[in-house]
Computed example of a mutant assay.
Amino acid sequence: MEQQLLNLLMYTIPSLVTGSVAYLFFREHMQNEEERRKFNIMKSLSKESLPVRLQAYERLALFLERISPNKLLLRVAPLSSDKQAYEDLLIKNIEQEFEHNLAQQIYLSDNCWSVVNASKSATIQLIRKVGVSEKIDSANKLREAILNEMLDKPAPSNAGLHFIKKEVGEIW
């Protein structure tokens, strides 16, 4: 009886050790294969998504350039001499440009999108702040006042452009 138990252990223990080693090796191999598959998928997605992401950055850089007060005032001429109508037209133009590029946010970091959004809001706020003045009574005077305001300081959209350039530089 003792001899049979000893024989059983002599066959069972090496089989258990061999089976355990095989199991651990197989599990490790499967994990490595899964990681390799994920890496290959990410690599192919990155190859396809990079041009789309860069295009999103380009479009938002163009948006920020277009809403820069100096360029906006040259592009959007007043339809009448009414100051309030021109102020509304400028803000409407900025909002339309923004809505046109709204979907680009999915390709940007949250910080970058926040900076772009803040640049838009700051530009609108600048136009409204200048428009509040009692001295300005016509659309042309509003244009002049906004341009004069921009002589001393950079456009609010410059911060957004700088952030976009920095973020695109980090992609490379």
Rank of each mutant, 00 (worst) to 15 (best):
L62Q: 10
E95I: 15
L126K: 06
A103T: 12
E99P: 00
N70G: 07
E149A: 15
P69G: 07
S81R: 08
N158G: 01
R37D: 07
N40C: 05
A155L: 06
V17N: 04
L60I: 12
S68Q: 09
R37W: 04
D137T: 13
L64I: 02
L108H: 03
L142P: 01
S80Q: 11
A85I: 09
S44K: 15
L147P: 00
K38D: 06
G169L: 10
A77L: 15
H162Q: 11
K153N: 11
D137W: 07
E2G: 13
A139V: 01
A118R: 14
P51W: 10
I106A: 09
K92P: 00
L6D: 06
H162T: 08
E35A: 06
V168F: 04
P14H: 04
K120P: 00
I164V: 10
L79F: 05
I91R: 09
E65P: 00
S81F: 11
I91A: 04
L72S: 03
K129A: 14
K135H: 11
L151V: 14
E34N: 13
L8S: 11
L73S: 12
V115C: 04
Q4A: 15
F25H: 03
N7L: 12
L6T: 10
G169F: 08
L79E: 06
G131I: 03
N70W: 06
Q96I: 14
E28D: 10
D82W: 01
N40I: 05
Q84V: 03
M30C: 04
L5A: 13
L90Q: 07
E87V: 01
R66D: 04
E28V: 05
R66W: 01
S138G: 06
N111V: 14
L126G: 02
N148V: 09
D88H: 07
Y86A: 02
D110V: 14
P69T: 06
S119K: 09
G131F: 02
T123Q: 05
Y57K: 07
M10C: 05
L62C: 04
E149D: 12
K71G: 04
Q105F: 01
A56S: 15
E33Y: 00
Y23E: 00
S80L: 10
M1A: 14
D110C: 05
A85N: 09
S81L: 12
D88F: 01
P156F: 01
K165D: 13
D110R: 13
E87P: 00
V76S: 09
S109Y: 02
N158P: 00
T123S: 12
E34F: 10
Y107V: 06
S81H: 13
K43C: 06
I94F: 05
S133Q: 12
V132T: 12
Q105W: 01
E34R: 15
L64K: 03
Y23D: 00
P154C: 08
E48S: 13
S157R: 06
A103W: 02
K166W: 03
L73Y: 11
L90H: 08
L72F: 06
E149M: 09
R143E: 11
N158M: 12
F98P: 00
R37L: 12
R27C: 00
M1L: 11
Y57M: 07
K135Y: 10
S157I: 03
L126E: 06
D88M: 08
I91W: 02
L60C: 03
S68W: 01
I171E: 10
N93D: 13
I106Y: 02
I106L: 09
S133I: 05
I146Q: 04
